[in-house]
Design a protein around this nucleic acid. Structure first.
Lengths: 230, 230
DNA sequence: AGAATAGTGTCTGTAAGACAATATGAA
DNA sequence: TTCATATTGTCTTACAGACACTATTCT
């Protein structure tokens, strides 16, 4: 790496300026303590930023994102989709570096493997470097927009969940409260989940039935028009 | 430009391989003869491709897309949004060139200014170069998905349209037929359009009232869950 | 008058919020 | 038994498809 303050450059074989590198940034979301949280990493200047890295010249950007996530969390099976590309020429002080932002959802109990990575609640984020606050906002819009139309929550609820657990996740993402019975009816009506034969959990009251998403890959359901935000 | 068959390369000032260039490709859609059509340009090898170009080192990708569209169509006020980025290392035989695909909607009567550009119906596209068939498919999904939830059709219906004209456009995008009265009721219910004080058109039967979208910039409406495809 | 297009009103099945009532297991 | 949680059922409003009916203008 070059020293701080130095701006990198690149030229192609035709003699024109080229992007210095291609980056990916990943908005990793999960639900912890009934709250939507995002994974942040410490930067040298003590601010926080999204996890990310540079795409190799023989690598697909999605592959880079998955590789970086495996380094930070130890997970190699997760919900990952491309979000949007941020490529304003001055977005990175190191030079012309377009970044392909990705969105990843990981199971509720995931702990960072990298000690520089920590979870932060989406409400009350610290100041973020680069244009990362914009990227996080875009990610929140995306996950809310798809919540009731796709199996996007399968990243947080990999399988064997109860309706109550699913409801906590959906409420944290949507930022609202759902009636338990109506929630169960409407989640079943999406056609995305199926009962799991496993034995029930050992909890306080009546044991709940377990469900899982039928598909682990991104898929669309029948679509419910459910209330979002308060 | 280099001669065909030669693969470009680039290195950055740290000595690592860099992307050769950053491209934009634009899926320009309109409704012509009650059909959804896309703007294609001829390539040197006689195949067709999406209009596009290289992003300058001091340029935003959206700016590049708008500039290219102005060259092809003479339009400078249109609905333009980012679609997705295609950056597989081998997607372009000229070298490592990520492409930020955009989606643009232009008014029904728009004729290409560039003689190499022609309209082609989405049903029955010719073979396209690169990964452009995938990009077009992604664009169709996007515009269908947003049709009844946003003012995305404002690009095709800039103002002073009748309900019948709007219905033709919505039907062409959705790929289905709507009942005229139900269509009008539900389009009004989106909250996105408003009556226009202009005088009615000179047509055969009873003259229709005119409407326009209240917002020309991308905006979300109340959302209707309407039938799509057959 | 008759044709053509625009717009209104009504009926019906489904979707979704609210909430009461019941079921099941642990303390 | 009492408490806590899960699940079922019902009521009500809004949404959206279908379609009959009325309105306005031109030929």
């Amino acid at each position: 790496m070059s020293s701080a303050g130095e701006r990198w450059t690149a030229v192609n074989s035709a003699g024109y300026p080229a992007p210095v590198a291609l980056a990916v940034d990943v908005v990793v979301l999960s639900v912890r303590r009934s709250e939507l949280q995002v994974l942040l990493v410490d930067r040298p200047d003590a601010t926080k930023a999204l996890p990310g890295g540079l795409v190799g010249s023989e690598e697909s950007p999605g592959g880079t994102a998955a590789r970086k996530l495996a380094e930070k969390t130890g997970l190699d099976d997760l919900y990952l989709e491309q979000l949007a590309t941020f490529a304003e020429p001055d977005r990175d002080p190191r030079g012309w570096i377009p970044s392909i932002a990705h969105l990843a959802l990981v199971p509720a109990g995931t702990e960072p493997r990298d000690p520089a990575a920590t979870w932060a609640p989406l409400s009350g984020l610290p100041p973020l470097g680069f244009d990362h606050a914009t990227i996080v906002r875009t990610a929140l819009e995306r996950v809310r927009g798809k919540l009731w139309w796709s199996n996007i929550a399968v990243g947080i609820l990999p399988g064997g969940f109860t309706m109550s657990e699913a409801r906590v996740v959906y409420e944290a993402i949507a930022g609202t409260a759902y009636d338990p019975s109506t929630f169960a009816r409407d989640l079943r009506a999406t056609g995305l989940i199926e009962p799991e034969p496993a034995e029930p959990r050992l909890t306080r009251g009546r044991p709940a039935r377990l469900y899982r998403f039928a598909e682990r890959e991104p898929a669309w359901g029948h679509g419910r028009r459910k209330r979002l935000h308060g």
